[in-house]
Each structure stands twice: as C-alpha cells, then as structure tokens.
Amino acid sequence: MTIELHWFSILREQRGKDREIVEFEGGSAGDLYRRLAILHAFALPVPSLRVAVNDAFAEWHTPLSDGDRVVYIAPVGGG
C-alpha cells in the first residue's frame, strides 16, 4: 500500500521535505513511525509524539489503509 506523509515543524526539518508518498507493507501508525525513525534517524521518541490519520487524531495501534494521510505530531507549543 502507499501512505501519504505530511511533515511539520522539527520533523519537517529533520526529514528535509514537507510531504512524500511511501510504500508500506501494512501495519499500524506506530509500526510505520518506528520504521521511518530508524530510516531517517529521527530523535523524537514515540511517547513524546501523537499521530493523526486523515486529519483526525488517531491511536498508535490504528491500522493504516492504502492511501491514508498520516502526520506525526511533535510536541506542540501553541499560544
């Protein structure tokens, strides 16, 4: 399946791009992050992040489907 990734803030800077399409063999949103974190040497640990699937907050164990839009959310700092 293919997953559409959008990157923001510190993760966008570390990844060097704001969006991309990746091939994924299947699994959860957490499975994909752990794979990407190793691939791109992301320093942010899973407990510090949240994840959104198709523009809604999701759980790490949420299974991903072909074409999903996924965003990994670094610690927020609005206000």
């Binding site: 923001f8 510190i10 992301f42 320093a43 965003v71 927020v76 700092g77 609005g78």
Partner: peptide, 26 residues
C-alpha cells in the same frame, strides 16, 4: 498541532518543547 520556534539574538533557533525530547533516542 501548532509549533513555536524561538529565534534568539545570536542567530540560533529552537522548536519549543521539542528540543528536550530530541535529546533522547527513539
């Protein structure tokens, strides 16, 4: 999901609340 980046007079910058987390391994 709003992120704040602080820019300092010496030209450096930091994403607030992200830096401490980034010092630990995944």
């Amino acid at each position: 999901p709003i992120w704040k980046k602080e820019f300092y007079p010496d030209g450096t910058s930091v994403w607030v609340r992200c830096q401490a987390c980034a010092n630990h391994p995944v």
